[in-house]
Write a protein that binds this DNA or RNA. Structure first.
Length: 334
DNA sequence: ACTAGCCCCTGGGAGC
DNA sequence: TGCTCCCAGGGGCTAG
């Protein structure tokens, strides 16, 4: 599932590949009457406006805010004599939720493809050789396709359709409900021990794992990285935030920065369906110490004063905490 | 103002 | 082989 490192990997890819290009057209097969999706491209009426507003615009920049991707556009061109678009420049806000990812490449319509056989309304497959990584089944659930001015496409692939794509006014994007209640980004240099303490004060009585995944407290951390951070910090996921000692907070801060950076260095976590914009897997899943390691021996080791390597005698346990599965060591996480 | 719990969605895996 | 059932979970929403 895309968390900060996965969204950052995608954002970096987009900055490199699509900044400066124009959006010529957009297609979707999403069509819902679900009220909760009325302000997204999944809503038919909304999609019409969306298409009109973004067609012909230029992609100015791409940024990440927590787990959201923001694609900032130029003002849409208007025929002479017609007033400019209300609200000025637009920003496409994308949240990948559980199974979403973005793909950049060449696509062509193929009605007999895998996705179509599964009942999709339409389907696009990559215009690549058969052994292309883009033929990975997880890259076939394509629901929105942007046609770009270099004849390539930006596709939104989302197996479970939890993802969200909506259009905002660039000027006020950060003040909308989507973005105005998000805590500081832990990878910012200014995010230090003081910041961490201040943020945790917001939820004094909460379990650390739950609080850590709360986007209004800290931005970008989800189930995988919270498990890994707490494993490395030696802190039990159910510890109340107000019982954490100074040295534990220091460890949590250090582990957070280290693991999020490690996630980015490995190109994200593809244990499930995350793929980068070229359709390729990241490798962080090969370095899990806790997440989905239930029943395995704890891999933590330390070097004793005599120079011997001592292994933790714990086993990784799984427990549902506030409706989310938590994985932690039975021994060293206290 | 809080929080627990439901819901969205669908492929994959287990069990029969 | 093929059916049913359950699981994964971010975050919006609602009921308490």
């Amino acid at each position: 599932m895309p968390e900060l490192p996965e969204v950052e990997t995608t954002t970096r890819g987009l900055k490199k590949e699509i900044a400066g290009l124009k959006i010529l057209d957009v297609w979707t097969d999403l069509n819902t009457k679900d009220k909760r999706k009325h302000d997204t491209v999944a809503d038919v009426k909304y999609f019409k406006t969306f298409k009109k507003e973004i067609s012909g615009t230029k992609i100015i920049s791409v940024e990440r805010k927590a787990k959201n991707i923001l694609i900032n556009l130029s003002t849409p061109p208007r025929p002479t004599g017609t007033p400019p678009s209300k609200g000025g420049d637009k920003t496409i806000l994308i949240h990948l939720k559980m199974t979403g990812h973005l793909l950049y490449g060449k696509y062509k319509f193929n009605p007999s493809s895998y996705h179509h056989r599964k009942g999709g309304a339409g389907s696009w497959i990559p215009d690549e050789k058969a052994n292309s990584p883009l033929h990975d089944p997880y890259n076939r659930f394509i629901h929105v396709v942007f046609t770009l001015s270099n004849k390539k496409h930006l596709a939104f692939c989302d197996m479970r359709k939890f993802g969200k794509m909506t259009l905002l006014d660039t000027k006020t994007a950060h003040d909308t409900k989507h973005l105005n209640n998000i805590g500081p980004d832990p990878l910012e240099k200014s995010f230090n021990l003081r910041t961490l303490k201040e943020r945790l004060l917001k939820k004094l009585n909460g379990k650390i794992k739950t609080v850590f995944m709360d986007q209004s407290v800290i931005a970008g951390i989800g189930n995988i990285y919270s498990d890994e951070i707490l494993w490395r910090s030696g802190v039990h996921p159910e510890r109340k935030t107000n019982t954490l000692k100074e040295n534990e907070l220091k460890l949590i801060l250090k582990s957070t920065k280290e693991l999020l950076n490690k996630g980015i260095d490995f190109g994200g976590d593809s244990m499930s369906d995350y793929r980068n914009i070229y359709g390729l897997r990241g490798e962080f899943q090969l370095h899990h110490e806790a997440y989905r390691c239930t029943g395995e021996k704890c891999r933590r080791s330390r070097v004793s004063p005599r120079g011997r390597k001592k292994y933790c005698k714990g086993v990784i346990l799984r427990k549902i905490i506030n409706g989310r599965s938590a994985h932690y060591c039975s021994n060293h996480q206290k």
